[in-house]
Design a protein around this nucleic acid. Structure first.
Ligand SMILES: [Mn+2]
Ligand SMILES: [Mn+2]
Ligand SMILES: [Mn+2]
Ligand SMILES: [Mn+2]
Lengths: 172, 172
DNA sequence: TCTACAAGTTAACCTTGGCTAAAATACTGT
DNA sequence: ACAGTATTTTAGCCAAGGTTAACTTGTAGA
């Protein structure tokens, strides 16, 4: 419960409460139309349904690449979660046709699982590199990217990618 | 199930698979140390615990400000969720000391609830304005901000704020 | 070989956040 | 005043994601 507290609530952001307003229309910023507002929340709920699956297949792909196999002990350690939890989630991944394995053996990705892992990995990389290009420290960028990646649309991803590229050129 | 699919998986990002690598060290990008990796995921799980609460208090504050009262019908409509769901979540908000209300009456925020709403609102605004400053369309920026906001650390928030400010100055 | 220990699974439990259907309460117009 | 409608709550259901504890399976060393 200690290291996660850099998303500090209390005492954070109390120094500059007004310069949040670079344009004039922020005060009493009207609510969006009800149905559009509902779609925003629906998109978030939607992302939540797949986000854990994405992290799992991404991690499994990484383990397969870097250690040759993906054992559930390693997943449990890296996820910071019990082995029982991993076992149950893997059952779900299998039932969704993303992962295959024989009991008590290493995990593998199906075609579908590899496709999802590739997508997730790419998206994760784009977000992480963008944050670093912005000037965020590596440690923080990794933490933020792990959560943000699931909520970044295609449109935003492309813009992030362009920014990172141009920022790289500026450095060179 | 239609409008949320701009986080498209299939067919998305297949055009430029290689330019994700502005620096050379991306191929076989080593895994972080196990404990640090676990902390990343823990931070995300942590954010998930409060994110709905934050959205609720933020919405309640907005409704109080813009319509004078916060009825659970309105919350249900704006969240795109049933009234029963709102009722149950509100019970939880009350038990956490964030919201107060008498049965069958409008909702109000406690001191604690207002503090959380103010924080959440400010953070939400920073993320939204940052995305717009980056060049993301309003519609997409609103959707992405709704999810991203809960996963942006203090450090990143400050950098976003600076970027937005400077971007505004460049426009003027 | 067989015994210990590591790795994986299963069972039983919990909380959160959804849902529908039914019941209770409040409000409004005649 | 009260009938009818709108709002809110409650009850009962479900899936996801977490836990611990107990059991099973695999593997490596003496
Ligand atoms: Mn990821
Ligand atoms: Mn992630
Ligand atoms: Mn918000
Ligand atoms: Mn939100």
């Amino acid at each position: 419960m200690l290291p996660y507290e850099h998303f500090g609530y209390i005492g954070a952001m109390t120094d500059s409460p007004n310069d949040v307003t670079p344009d004039r229309l922020c005060k009493a910023d009207a609510l969006p139309p009800s149905d559009q507002h509902a779609q925003q929340y629906a998109a978030v709920r939607n992302a939540h349904e797949t986000e854990l699956l994405e992290d799992y297949v991404e991690l499994i792909a990484d383990l397969l690449e870097h250690q040759g196999e993906a054992r559930s002990t390693d997943i449990a350690a890296r996820m910071g979660v019990s082995q029982a939890t991993v076992s149950k989630t893997v059952t779900r991944l299998k039932s969704l046709g993303l992962v295959s394995s024989k009991p008590y053996r290493s995990l593998f990705l199906t075609e579908k699982g590899e496709a999802m892992a590739a997508m997730s990995h790419q998206r994760h990389a784009i977000v992480l590199q963008f944050l670093r290009a912005l000037g965020v420290s590596d440690r923080t960028a990794r933490i933020d990217a792990e959560g943000m990646e699931h909520h970044v649309s295609q449109e935003t991803l492309e813009i992030m990618q362009r920014y990172t590229r141009e920022q790289g050129r500026r450095d060179a």
